[in-house]
Write a protein that binds this DNA or RNA. Sequence first.
DNA 1: TCCCGGGGAAATTTTACCTCA
DNA 2: TATGAGGTAAAATTTCCCCGG
Length: 330
Amino acid sequence: MAEKDDGLGLTLSLKCSETYHPPPPPPPPPTVTAASTRFPLNLLPSPPLSFVQRHVSSHLNHQNHHQKLSFVINQPDLNPEPRSYQRVIDVNRPPASTSTLVALTAERDDDAFVSSPNSTVSSVSGKRVEREDNEAERESSSHGISGGEDEDDGGDAAAARKKLRLSKDQAAVLEETFKEHNTLNPKQKLALAKQLDLRPRQVEVWFQNRRARTKLKQTEVDCEYLKRCCDTLTEENRRLQKEVNELRALKLSPQFYMNMNPPTTLTMCPQCERVAVSSSSAAATSSTVGSTGLPKPLSMPSNHQKQNNLFLPRASIIPHRPVDAHHPRW
DNA sequence: TCCCGGGGAAATTTTACCTCA
DNA sequence: TATGAGGTAAAATTTCCCCGG
């Protein structure tokens, strides 16, 4: 991501541990969970809520208000809490008073046929239950032929256009089917439509929209992961830059030369693990920096250390170098 | 190789419903 | 309490593209 040679023999190399792969076609299972994401979220820190997180959270919170069937990351159960709604109106079963309209629309071909003019929703709140009652009445009266609307043809078109909310049961069955396979062949579509008393076109549209929502959620998850990755790398970069600055200050410090290491310090290459006699500058580079920013004096190895081969002076912080630049002065 | 129809993806529109001032 | 504006999710439509026959 970023490489920098600052003259101290330090190379800053910031690379994301993972390579971002362009999104493949959305694979089954379609439900978005942390496990289904392409990225190992558990390997990442948990930064504060990002924009994306806030956005998604806002969306999800809003959906809670609506009490609509939706999918939530890490929440495969679509109907987690028992609903207390009193009654569910099947939007695809027209009220008795709308039979005339049904008769009118029944002339259409399958896809153009409107299964119900009733637009009420399956509700969870008492408030909405009341609305259902009211709307059911309103619908049944407004769609009656006796209403005498001048929309004889246009009325049909409007009715065909009328959007219908699927009932909870219908949506649940669709969700279950979608979990098994996110696309339907014509046979499955017809069977499902028959089972749910929907038009095949409705089932098809529902699956299309559901795939779109799945993909959108997956995109949001991916975006969130990448943002976290970016945050982590930014923090790492900041830390390394600070370290570089400290080392630069160290190099320019007069005390750096005063505390010059004896010329026979042993250093070990972290790549080949060969121990070599390092130059004074290299040894100084590997000196540790105290909290004050000043170098600690290097000490000569004791006899014990020498005999037991325990003195490997800070070889572990000798910076990694590219292979082709290996041992430039060895 | 071109044409055609079916199906999916993406973009967009429409509708229903909620919250809030 | 009623109402309208604003916002959102979901249903539906339109358009484009790909692929197999």
